[in-house]
Write a protein that binds this DNA or RNA. Structure first.
Lengths: 222, 222
DNA sequence: ACGCAAACTTGCGTGCGCGCACTTTTCTTG
DNA sequence: CAAGAAAAGTGCGCGCACGCAAGTTTGCGT
């Protein structure tokens, strides 16, 4: 449907992008990320340094891109394939949690490397912004019964909020990693907040948005 | 309370920052924003170019900073001074709308200049991220009755969502300005969506988040 | 009042993002 | 199938962000 013949042009383009991704990640783990020049990445991928940043605006973006890959489309697909009786809030939460968890499980070493360097950490956080457009589309799909494009506006806000919540969760998950801090923190009330694994952080961050999703799904005035 | 004697050091620092702000904005409107070198701004403010980006990470940031000023503290103050019987959602919405409206009214010419150049437009959007920390604090204040720091986590998510919604509103408001498009757009359903003034856009974008605020304020399981 | 430590500023060097003009490759149209 | 259009790659150069290692100012303790 979308790509009967993807075209030679597009294929070479994706190949170059993939080569740059791989080269950037490989060099970053071999030597330290700070010991990698753009020239090195470009040379390893067989292109000019100028071409390199036709694809990536920064060194960190290229490295992180190897891990981030096409997370956007996978999340959107997961939400689109929801059981239809499940609420939008649950569908979005599950999709986000699963994709980030899978990515987290896949390459521990790389993730650890990324969380170490502040620059890579920031690039990793910025990369989550990429899920917003497809998320907007799929949420708008779920809100299609709303009149006019009122649902479209709501979808944009909800998608942006989800991205914001994910960012908060990732920040909360990255902070203890950066410092040598206990995995649990005790608050004044005596309650123990695990501040735990990535999935827990994500679910905790997305939970406050559930009422907004429910209200949007059932219409503003039912 | 906070600054009985602000200290000589801090005063000079703020003076330098103010001088850089003013110089950047003045030069940007005199010549085009693209015809302003960092060296010029620094020279006009009487400091070294190197000192300049101890204060601002980019040219655009300095220019926009003159308009943005201390919007963070004003929004936080406005929310903190809410009528106590008003809901958190209303308080936050009113505070945000008023501050952005006032800033918008103040200097039409400057705003128009900013919205013209894409780089300044992006910097202006990024500047809204600055309201998140104080907003988080003041929302957490409003959710103080929640046990432990569960309210704190919720406050972070809500504040981040507000920032995201504001960004969506600003994008929707900036897009028609950039192109020569009609101020109203007709959708498939025949409904006319004004896509109107900044306050309208802001309220429309913040409305979907109101249920989340209400749920958080009354507690998850009341 | 004096001197020490921390904070701020400054000159310098490096690598990088990106605009511009040009070459090469790929797609389309007569 | 050839010729022109469109798009990707390339060389070059400018300005800028930022680390580093001084020098300078401010604030505090004794």
């Amino acid at each position: 449907m979308t790509t009967p013949p993807p075209g030679l042009r597009e294929r070479k383009k994706q190949a170059t992008r993939e080569a740059l991704r791989e080269a950037a990640l490989r060099l970053a783990v071999e030597r330290g990320p700070d010991q990698v020049r753009v020239e090195d990445i470009a040379k390893a991928a067989g292109v000019s340094p100028r071409t390199y940043n036709n694809y990536f605006a920064s060194r960190e973006q290229a490295i992180v891109s190897a891990v981030t890959a096409d997370r956007e489309v996978r999340i959107a697909a997961a939400v689109a394939a929801r059981p239809a009786e499940a609420s939008l809030a649950d569908a979005v939460t599950d999709a986000v949690v699963e994709q980030y968890t899978n990515a987290g499980e896949r390459e521990h070493e790389t993730l650890l490397l990324i969380t170490t360097r502040p620059a890579l950490r920031d690039a990793f956080l910025d990369a989550t912004a990429g899920i917003e457009p497809p998320l907007t589309a799929v949420i708008a799909e779920g809100l299609a019964e709303r009149p006019g494009d009122a649902g479209a506006h709501t979808a944009r806000v909800l998608a942006a909020s989800v991205v914001a919540a994910v960012r908060v969760a990732l920040e909360g998950w990255l902070r203890p990693t950066g410092e040598a801090r206990a995995t649990r923190s005790v608050c004044a009330g005596g309650l123990v907040v695990p501040a735990g694994s990535l999935p827990d952080q994500l679910r905790a961050a997305l939970a406050p948005l559930a009422p907004a999703f429910d209200a949007a799904e059932r219409g503003t005035q039912p």
